[in-house]
Amino acid sequence: MTTYTLTVPYEFTKNGRTERRFRRVGAVFENTRKETGETFLSIKLDFPVAVTELVAFQPSPRDGDEPPIDD
Rank of each mutant, 00 (worst) to 15 (best):
20 R>K: 09
65 D>Y: 10
21 R>L: 04
68 P>G: 00
35 E>Y: 08
27 A>P: 04
21 R>F: 11
67 P>I: 06
4 Y>D: 10
68 P>E: 06
37 G>S: 01
46 D>Y: 05
11 E>S: 13
59 P>I: 03
4 Y>P: 05
30 E>R: 01
60 S>F: 14
15 N>R: 14
70 D>T: 15
52 T>Y: 10
26 G>C: 01
17 R>W: 01
65 D>N: 07
52 T>P: 04
56 A>I: 07
3 T>P: 00
62 R>I: 06
51 V>E: 13
56 A>Y: 02
59 P>K: 07
8 V>R: 07
1 M>F: 05
50 A>C: 12
57 F>P: 01
65 D>I: 03
42 S>D: 11
19 E>Q: 14
3 T>D: 01
54 L>C: 05
18 T>S: 06
36 T>D: 04
41 L>P: 01
15 N>S: 11
36 T>S: 15
28 V>Y: 05
46 D>E: 08
33 R>N: 10
47 F>G: 09
34 K>F: 10
6 L>F: 00
50 A>I: 11
11 E>N: 11
5 T>A: 11
35 E>N: 03
24 R>F: 06
32 T>R: 02
69 I>Y: 05
48 P>R: 06
61 P>A: 08
70 D>E: 15
32 T>I: 11
26 G>P: 01
27 A>Y: 13
37 G>N: 06
67 P>L: 06
57 F>L: 04
9 P>C: 02
51 V>W: 12
66 E>T: 14
5 T>D: 05
30 E>K: 09
41 L>W: 11
71 D>G: 12
56 A>P: 12
35 E>M: 10
65 D>H: 10
46 D>P: 03
